[in-house]
Design a binder for these strands. Sequence first.
DNA 1: TCATAAAATAACTCAGACAATATTTCAGCA
DNA 2: TGCTGAAATATTGTCTGAGTTATTTTATGA
Lengths: 274, 274
Amino acid sequence: MLRYCSSGSDSKLSRKPSQLTHLARRESEPGAGPKARDKALRLHGTIARKLGISIVSGRFKPGDLLNGEIASSEQFAVSRTAYREAVRILAAKGLVDARPKVGTRINAQSEWNLLDPDVLDWTFESEPDLQLLNSLFELRNVVESAAAGMAAKRRSAAHLKAMRAALDGMATHTLATEAGRQADLDFHTTLLTATHNPFIISLTNGVNAAIRTTTIFKQRERPLRRDPLPDHMRVFEAITAGEVGKAERAMSELIELARIDTPASKRRPRKRGR
Amino acid sequence: MLRYCSSGSDSKLSRKPSQLTHLARRESEPGAGPKARDKALRLHGTIARKLGISIVSGRFKPGDLLNGEIASSEQFAVSRTAYREAVRILAAKGLVDARPKVGTRINAQSEWNLLDPDVLDWTFESEPDLQLLNSLFELRNVVESAAAGMAAKRRSAAHLKAMRAALDGMATHTLATEAGRQADLDFHTTLLTATHNPFIISLTNGVNAAIRTTTIFKQRERPLRRDPLPDHMRVFEAITAGEVGKAERAMSELIELARIDTPASKRRPRKRGR
DNA sequence: TCATAAAATAACTCAGACAATATTTCAGCA
DNA sequence: TGCTGAAATATTGTCTGAGTTATTTTATGA
């Protein structure tokens, strides 16, 4: 019996939300971790996030109808305005479809913008499903390997210089430090820039961000198995030499290494039976 | 349809239809304005589209501030509510960033969700920029070729059957008819389904839709150069035989053919200077 | 039976007020 | 002077309650 009603919640006022008390805020988090996730979400943003997680996690299923605006806004203890803006966000990402007289219906998964950064974030927020994570690495492998090949053809001297600097940064600081991770990110960002393909840049940026947070999140449990620096060096050398195939293969190895080091997906999914 | 939560709140208070005051009616445009491609876009959708096109087309540049909500809503002759929901859509797609006291700022292109179906649509709405279109075909080539390879490994008998049926449809009706184009779409959709990778499905669906409309739009100017059916057959045969590399190469050829047949990009852009 | 019109319902739009949030300004003090 | 912190300010954010529109369902008539 799923219900996202606030029945058990600490709603002070039963009805008449005239001056609603400040809802639970999610600022705190004084951790020294990356503030990337700290975006100062507003009311509509938090509700979109809640609903979005409920949808991508499967708690709400495609074809289901959300409750009406009045009912839903009351459940969340917000105004219809805020709730509607939240729904608007979800509709913009293809998760739902709102129509007069019909209601707000959850779309089929094929309609979702799965590669939207927020949707990716919500997807891997709760349960980093193993199957799904491997699918994401599969796509990343395809796209980023090709990107390395393009970079080998199209990189400029400035690109090479920036990548070398990033590798130096990775060497001095390790990946355990924030500075080291920043250098890693710089390397990949520069490589993508060298492709001169805005779509590949947009796609890979979002995907890597999602994977990175997933990785960081679980990182404490155990250290990296292998030093990723040599693999990065191989990619860099191939790009410097302008060897397309070599760059592609080196990047593919690098990503496969990253996949193996991502805790949630230890085993290779070779049981892809039909 | 199951509903979340109790449906107890059926507050049917008396809604007395008091005398109707005629509000300010927005100008009823005699069919000339926005129409055609949208399926019953509402007001906020229409404005989001207008603004979105202004942004992706470069009329509004990154870093610029949009006018304030009151000014903008007056400019569009809509309420602040509708305008705000439009901005919310754009923000959900990464095009803008709205913050109190600062205003609504247009993000850098690297922040945009370029692969969002709507953003793609808006991008190729006005001016199918040659460079950009080739970048999109480049991505499509990478991803969909790999998808064909995956399909060769993972397809089921049902997939093969559906693809064969689609090919038959393409043969009987030509691509000049709607039924033929539907069969073409079915073929590609089935192929993607066979990859079992939701991200690749989501990505390619959106990209192909954008390319398709661009192609269809310009189609009248001249007929196709070459019959695409043989190329499709080669892809199908390779997938049937389970030959990964062959399927990848065949799909790559197919996409290259499509690129060449897309009017906006006649010549190969080989001057990709660094 | 089918086409057409009326009713019902949900999202949609409107208007105006107030609140929250950053930026900017400026007073107070070392 | 130069710095710190509080207040003014401008903009988005949220709330309320009403009326409007689109779409489905039902009723009606030929």
